[in-house]
Design a protein around this nucleic acid. Structure first.
Lengths: 73, 73
DNA sequence: GTGTGACTTAAAGTCCGTC
DNA sequence: CGACGGACTTTAAGTCACA
């Protein structure tokens, strides 16, 4: 599992929903720049952060993980 | 999402496979005491750790998360 | 609207051990 | 075999000024 896979998935999901990093950050109550760090693969989320992000994206946390798995192939 | 849900799922999955904490730790190259901390809900895994654990349990990472989601209900 | 570096604090994760 | 503790190192969490 490459370190930046999650970030790419996150960015894709965010853009599919036409959200800015700023707006997403607001929705999940995280810092804008932290979203940026995640998308660039400079941070790996904890499970708790994954759940927050999934909630903001209105998706099941497991669905987010599925997308990461698919990218692993 | 309660803090100890993941730990319970992890312990269930481990026991289903008749693995000791020590053996699981060896399989995923994590510390023996850390598995214990996870199962007791005193630590939350990062995404990378989730993938390691899932690999050792021979399950998809997303399946692990699904189990956590189910417990949330 | 985002990238980036620097930073502090909290938590992840290790290693030693005892019971 | 697992709970638990202490001391430790590494990394995530969370924020900031600035480009």
């Amino acid at each position: 599992m490459k370190a930046d896979l999650f970030g790419k998935v996150l960015q894709e999901m965010r853009k599919e929903r036409h959200l800015s990093q700023e707006k997403l950050a607001e929705l999940c109550e995280l810092d804008r720049t932290y979203i940026s760090l995640l998308e660039r693969g400079l941070r790996q989320p904890t499970l708790a952060t994954l759940f927050k992000l999934a909630a903001a994206l209105e998706i099941n946390p497991s669905e987010l993980v599925v997308r990461v798995e698919q990218k692993s192939d």
